[in-house]
Design a protein around this nucleic acid. Structure first.
Lengths: 152, 152
DNA sequence: TTGACGATGAGACTTCGTATCAGTATTGTT
DNA sequence: AACAATACTGATACGAAGTCTCATCGTCAA
């Protein structure tokens, strides 16, 4: 829904932020990325923008809910253009493809938890990992490396 | 269940790892920590053990399921002695207290998702954030700092 | 046109973690 | 007991990810 440059620009302005050349460059780069990406990917494709500015802009876009964070199961943090409000990610461990989903029954869980613990639940973070259909079909056996989390 | 030094030592030996002085120091330090801690906390309380060894040992303990990782909502990674198998965390945003829980209906979610997406679900990561009873009672209003994620 | 202030970029710095590597300790074998 | 093989260690260099500082610049509004 909010995947369009103009909409983001509008949102920036509404919040009193300036729409500068640098920000536009970062924004273009971000929107041109594949499904998910690291800050480094953006850095590499915005050669005329300072490192700090790229980080600042990405943080800004997070605050504006234009981007969301995707936690890969090796612990690395990626970013993704956020196409809806609250959602979660289903990440393929093999090819890295990401699906969004919203149909988790988290409200029920929240109620359950609140009852059981007396906490006032304010938010949650859920990432699900698996193998997408294509990777299953390709028959490649997942490496199944113990329970360890190692970096790429 | 596995919060005892001897049990961990046994587990190490079973897996063919040596129980060295350094490992014992790290283990003691870890078990002496409060509910959750960073690697740095452990580093500070194990003065005679090398930095690399502390990291290595913590990774080892993760592999042995003696520790698990807790993702705080500011994005920082903490560790916690794992008292049961698969579980999730409910973290108080104010005081940092952590409760474990297992009663989430993730199997149902998994089935649902598998049907809807044709993924083969292999794992997930869920962290829930809120305010514990004590913090609510203390009446301290949560700072409500926009949607930003800032470090401590 | 001037002043205030937001934004920028270069680069130093911090934090968290891994890789390297020479040296030490332990183990099993004979 | 001697030995080689191997596990482990700590110092340190390195790397990735991100923040902070600060002088400078651009833009808006009076």
């Amino acid at each position: 829904m909010v995947s369009d440059v103009d909409l983001v620009v509008e949102r920036l302005e509404l919040r009193g932020h300036r729409v500068t050349e640098s920000r536009r460059r970062v924004l273009d780069a971000v929107l041109a990325q594949p499904a998910h990406f690291t800050v480094d990917d953006v850095l590499r494709s915005t050669r005329k923008v300072g490192r700090a500015t790229v980080f600042r802009t990405i943080r800004l876009l997070l605050d504006l809910n234009v981007l969301c964070r995707v936690l890969l199961d090796d612990g690395t943090l990626h970013y993704r253009v956020s196409t809806r409000g609250h959602h979660h990610h289903l990440v393929c461990r093999e090819c890295g493809r990401v699906e969004d989903f919203t149909q988790c029954d988290i409200p029920a869980l929240t109620r359950q938890l609140a009852n059981a613990t007396d906490y006032e639940i304010e938010g949650h973070w859920l990432e699900v990992y698996g193998r997408c259909r294509a990777c299953q079909a390709a028959g490649r056996e997942a490496a199944t490396v113990g329970a360890g989390h190692r970096r790429a």
